[in-house]
Nucleic acid binder design. Structure first.
Lengths: 324, 324
DNA sequence: CGCCGATATAGATGATTACCTATACTGCAT
DNA sequence: ATGCAGTATAGGTAATCATCTATATCGGCG
């Protein structure tokens, strides 16, 4: 049997004939003419090298070989119909996988989106990578993930971006700090304090340092800790003051105060970044759509800055054509 | 996804590419050029409406959709490879089914062939129909079986025949019969006795009657019994005499004697009959081949008259071309 | 016997496939 | 930058497919 020229269509026709026990009837069902079906059957029988049907009291019944072919055909067609369903689900973003890379600070917010999303699309496998800005940039260069969350995007030459959340950096101090409760603080005053800083390579630190440079200011004594949590706890314990994303602070923070320093908060926005040269998985696209639609249910409204519509629009245009 | 133009060949190519992780390598394995394979992949991806492969550090790896297609392809190709094996077995006569119709008398011999055959080909389903000549002729007209065993074939217009066994009809009498031990008996003497006869429609009876007619003889008193066994036992019990196939007599028959009547035994031959208009199943053909080869091991040699070679020869010529 | 429905065969045609050769592109290693 | 191996694209061609219409054949049935 030479399998090469066997088409699924041929099997479909054959199955219809066996089911109806008649060439003419099958032809009607398939919207073909009777000779077409006859000829297909003939070709199929030649391919298999065996007679498939014989006429018994006016009805076509499969031979031994034909019966087995019928079984095989049904299994095979069924298998591909399942595959079709699977692809349909993939395309709809109901199933599949994607990975997303977050800068550290964003891990305080993204679960609010990812949680409801996973409940809505339980068949999608999500992998979340977290690290500081520098680490995430490396992943970005290597095209290791479908989505990235940065507050300042890398070169947009190879990427599209869409803002979705404000990320204000505020000055925090222990509740009993000497400046606590004061109005009109200026940063110069604060710089006399010991600052708890994230490591170089952190986005928070980068933002802070470039802001200071703009203002023509420079840091006094510092202490470096590679985690927002550690810094927050450190500040509460009186180790010093710090600039932190507001998202890092718990809703109730009785042991910390936000100092109203002039020029603060430093405003930045988190954005989803998508590489333009890598095809975006349907699942990731589905997540972006979900994020656009459900942001206000998941995050306090004062942080929201939903510009995902634009990103989605640009993705639909450019990224729809499938290519091997 | 439009399944219509999907060929198994395409899946074979795809599987080879996924396996080797390279278009060029797959092309080499398949004895195709690289562009051919590339183009097939492209077409496959278009058919499925999804990208299937992406290049990861120099190796082509399947996407989500591609992985699922790979699975489906392997299952489907495997299924058809199994089908191929099955057909191969069918063709070789190692598997399948056939039915054979025997005239009553032949049931005393055919199991000697069918038994060893079934042991040699346990995957073949054999159905045996037994009845008198008239009943078997009806089955023959209706083309109900693959093989028939007659001593005198019906019209050979639609059939081929091959003799394989002598079927001598001998006169039997009870051991203490007045003619037992006598030489040179003539049938006229015997006809005075009561004859136990098979029913009209039986081959044995038909043979006997036409023989009598040729000899210009006619029967005296008769008693009719629709079974060879019943007649044999009846004769032994002194109910009369009879003409029976020698095959009906047990190897040791102390209660019966065969009378050496002039002109007896009536010689006839059993033959396998095959309809010419019905395709012979591979299994039935296999059985005929088996019979030809193993006859002498299964039946006492004095009965053998193996002309099956000729029948097989004629079958090979005419019946080899498969047609739907 | 002749008709009827079902099936098979013949012959035609545009679309598609399965390949090829030649060439252009691309990413990585030197 | 330059090659090189791998991949994609372009363009061509013979084979084949899918499908049709028209016609022949067959198997029953009244």
């Amino acid at each position: 049997m030479n399998i090469r020229h066997l088409t699924f269509r041929l099997l479909q026709v054959y199955v219809a004939v066996v089911r109806s026990g008649s060439v003419s009837e099958a032809a009607r069902q398939l919207h073909l003419t009777q000779p077409t079906v006859s000829q297909q059957l003939k070709r199929l029988a030649e391919t298999l090298g065996e007679p498939l049907l014989e006429s018994r009291q006016g009805r076509l019944v499969p031979t031994e070989a034909g019966t087995e072919l019928y079984r095989a055909s049904r299994e095979v067609l069924g298998r591909f119909s399942d595959l079709d369903d699977y692809l349909e689900a993939l395309r709809g973003g109901e199933r599949g996988r994607f990975s997303i890379a977050l800068v550290n600070t964003a891990q305080y917010v993204l679960p609010r989106l990812l949680g409801p999303y996973s409940c809505a699309f339980p068949e999608v496998d999500v992998t979340v990578h977290i690290g500081n800005r520098r680490q995430m940039l490396t992943r970005f260069e290597r095209q290791e993930d479908d989505l990235y969350v940065f507050s300042h995007p890398p070169s947009l030459a190879h990427a599209l971006a869409g803002r979705f959340l404000r990320n204000p950096l505020v000055a925090v101090a222990p509740r009993e700090h000497r400046l606590a409760g004061r109005e009109g603080i200026v940063m110069a005053e604060l710089l006399e304090e010991r600052f708890l800083l994230r490591e170089p390579g952190s986005a928070t630190r980068m933002l802070f340092e470039s802001w200071l440079q703009e203002q023509g200011l420079s840091l006094g004594p510092t202490l470096q800790m590679a985690s927002n949590e550690a810094i927050r706890v450190g500040v509460a314990a009186g180790m010093g003051v710090a600039l932190l994303s507001e998202h890092v602070l718990p809703p109730e923070h009785s042991d910390l105060v936000i100092l109203p320093v002039a020029g603060l908060p430093i405003e930045s926005h988190w954005q989803f970044i998508v590489r333009r040269d890598r095809r975006l998985s349907h699942a990731a696209l589905g997540f972006l759509r979900f994020a656009e639609g459900h942001l206000q249910e998941c995050v306090e409204s004062r942080f929201i800055s939903n510009e995902l519509g634009g990103l989605l629009g640009r993705l639909e245009e450019g990224g729809a054509a499938p290519s091997a």
